[in-house]
Design a protein around this nucleic acid. Structure first.
Length: 431
RNA sequence: GCCGGGGUAGGGUAGGCGGUCAUCCUACGGGACUGUGGAUCCUGUGACUCGGGUUCGAAUCUCGGCCCCGGCCCCA
C-alpha cells in the first residue's frame, strides 16, 4: 500500500519546522506589541461565506464539499471573511472599538501548485475593526513594516494606494459598478500596455476621453511622496477624489511620523476587489520573482456585505510560506543548535535506573534531557550524542557513582568533569 | 485548465539504444574495541513510483495514473 500526500500540500520537519516556529513567534511578539490579540477560527466555513464575499466564481478555486447533513462547506481560502463572521457573531455588540485581532493559520486553495504557491498554505494576518482614520491605517502599515524588519527581510517594498481616489473619479463621471470592476481587474494585472489599450485603444472600456486621460496618467504614477503634488493636480476639481487624496496625504504624514520609510506610492495597486474602500497595499520582495508578493491588505467595509452594521476595517495578511522563502533568500541561515542540553549515557546495565532518576531530576529543573532508550553500547552512545550535536553528555558509570558522582562531558570543547549528584543541576545551569 | 523536466534503499546518486546477484556515498544494525565521540576495517538490513502494453526477457522501450520540480492561466 502506497500513501502519498495530496498535490500541493507539504510536509515540514525538524529544522524547517523550527525556523517556522521561530518566525511565527517573532511575528506574534510584534503583533502583540501593537496591542493585537490572537484569535482562531475554524478551518472550514459555510461555502456561502466566501461566495458572498468574492462571488460565485471563486468556487473553482475552493476546496468545497458537502457534509453528511448536506451542508455546503468550504475549507477557508483566506481568513478575513471568517474574522468578519466571527465579529458579527461574537463581537459586534460587545467589544469596544477599535478591535485589534490577529491570526495565524492554514488556508486552502484549489490552484495549480508551484514555487511559493501551495494548496495548503499559511497566513499570518490582522484586522483592525472600527478605527476609521488614517492613523489606523498607518499603524497597521507600521506593524507590517516592523514585522518584515524583525524577520530580516530587508528588500521589502510596501506599495500603497488609496482606492478612494479612483472611485471618486468614477463617481464623478457616473461610471457604473460593472464597468468599474472590469477596469479594476485590468489595473490589478499590472500590465501597462494592456491598460493603455483598455483606456485609449480602439475599444476603451470607459467611453469618456477626459476620465481616460486622467486615469492613464494617474495609474502610471509610482514613486515616493514627491509624487503627491502630481496626484493632487490630477484630481483637482473632482471633489470626492480630492477628499480621498487628502486622506491619503494624511496617511503618508502619519507613516512618516511612525518612521516608516520603505514605502512606494503606487496608484496601480488595485487588489481587484469590490469591498476595498480606502487604502490598499501590497508588499513585494523582488528576489522572489513571480511570487514576490508576501503581503496584501487594505481598508474595507466587509461586515456590511455580511449584513452587519457598517464598520470600517483595515487588515492585511502575510503569506507565511513566502515570508519563509524571503528569509531563506535574504538572511544567513545559521545552523541550528540542538534542543537537547544533555544526553545521558549509562555505561552499563546496572546503572540504568540511576540514569533515569538523574534524567527525571534534570527535566524537573527544565534542563532539556535525552537518555538512551536503545541499550546500545557506551561507545555507540557517544557516537549518537555526537551526531545529534548534543551540548553535553552525562556519563553514568558505576565507579563514579560509588563516590556519588557522574562525569559530564562538554561535547564542543571535549572537556569533562566529575560532578556531585546533588550539583548536576547547578553545574548544567551555570555553564 | 495548459506547457516543460523529473520519480532508483531513510537521505543523496550511477546505470538508461532491453540480457550475469542493480553502482557508490551516507544513515541505520552487528562486530574488530566489556568506561569516552567526529577515524579505520569487516559485516548485515534496505530501492528501480503505480498499473497496462511490446518482448523469451523491462529500472531501461511504450501508454496511462499518482506524486515532485519549474513556467503559464489565475491569485478573493
Amino acid at each position: 500500500m502506497e500513501f502519498t500526500r495530496p498535490r500541493g500540500t507539504k510536509d515540514f520537519l525538524f529544522d524547517e519546522m523550527r525556523r517556522r516556529k521561530e518566525a511565527e513567534s517573532l511575528l506574534r511578539n510584534v503583533f502583540e506589541n501593537y496591542g493585537y490579540q490572537e484569535i482562531q477560527t475554524p478551518l472550514f466555513e459555510e461555502l456561502k461565506l466566501f461566495t458572498t464575499k468574492s462571488g460565485e466564481e471563486i468556487v473553482d478555486q475552493l476546496y468545497n464539499f458537502k457534509d453528511k447533513s448536506d451542508r455546503e462547506l468550504a475549507l477557508r481560502p483566506e481568513i478575513t471573511a471568517p474574522v468578519a463572521r466571527l465579529y458579527l457573531n461574537e463581537l459586534e455588540k460587545t467589544a469596544s472599538k477599535p478591535i485589534k485581532l490577529y491570526y495565524y493559520g492554514s488556508c486552502f486553495r484549489y490552484e495549480r501548485p508551484q514555487k511559493g504557491r501551495f494548496r495548503q498554505f499559511w497566513q499570518f494576518g490582522c484586522e483592525l475593526i472600527g478605527a476609521k482614520s488614517p492613523e489606523g491605517e498607518a499603524e497597521v502599515i507600521a506593524m507590517c513594516n516592523a514585522s518584515i524588519k524583525k524577520l530580516g527581510i530587508t528588500t521589502a517594498d510596501i506599495n500603497i494606494n488609496h482606492l478612494g481616489i479612483i472611485r471618486g473619479l468614477f463617481a464623478h463621471f457616473g461610471i457604473d459598478v460593472a464597468t468599474q470592476r472590469e477596469l479594476m481587474i485590468v489595473i490589478d494585472k499590472g500590465d501597462k500596455d494592456l491598460l493603455k489599450e483598455s483606456l485609449i485603444g480602439e475599444n476603451p472600456i470607459i467611453d469618456n476621453a477626459e476620465l481616460n486621460e486622467i486615469l492613464l496618467e494617474l495609474i502610471d504614477l509610482v514613486g515616493d511622496k514627491s509624487i503627491l503634488p502630481q496626484i493632487e493636480a490630477l484630481v483637482k476639481g473632482y471633489e470626492e477624489a480630492e477628499e480621498a487624496f487628502a486622506e491619503f496625504k494624511e496617511l503618508i504624514e502619519t507613516l512618516d511620523s511612525s518612521k516608516v520609510s520603505n514605502y512606494t506610492l503606487n496608484l496601480g495597486v488595485a487588489r481587484g476587489l469590490d469591498y476595498y474602500t480606502g487604502i490598499v497595499f501590497e508588499v513585494y520582495v523582488p528576489e522572489l520573482g513571480a511570487q514576490k508578493q508576501i503581503c496584501g491588505g487594505g481598508t474595507y467595509g466587509l461586515v456590511k456585505v455580511f449584513g452587519g452594521q457598517e464598520v470600517t476595517s483595515t487588515g492585511f495578511a502575510f503569506g507565511f510560506d513566502r515570508l519563509m522563502n524571503a528569509m531563506e533568500e535574504l538572511t544567513e541561515q545559521k545552523e541550528l543548535e540542538s534542543n537537547i542540553n544533555v544526553f545521558i549515557a549509562p555505561i552499563s546495565d546496572d546503572v540504568r535506573f540511576k540514569a533515569f532518576e538523574i534524567a527525571q531530576t534534570l527535566r524537573e529543573n527544565d534542563i532539556a534531557t535525552d537518555i538512551d532508550l536503545t541499550r546500545r553500547k557506551f561507545k555507540k552512545l557517544m557516537n549518537y550524542a555526537n551526531n545529534k550535536k548534543v551540548k553535553n553528555v552525562a556519563i553514568i558509570g558505576a565507579k563514579d557513582l560509588e563516590d556519588g558522582k557522574i562525569t559530564i562531558k562538554n561535547m564542543e570543547s571535549g572537556e569533562q568533569s566529575l560532578v556531585n549528584l546533588d550539583e548536576i543541576v547547578s553545574y548544567l545551569k551555570g555553564e
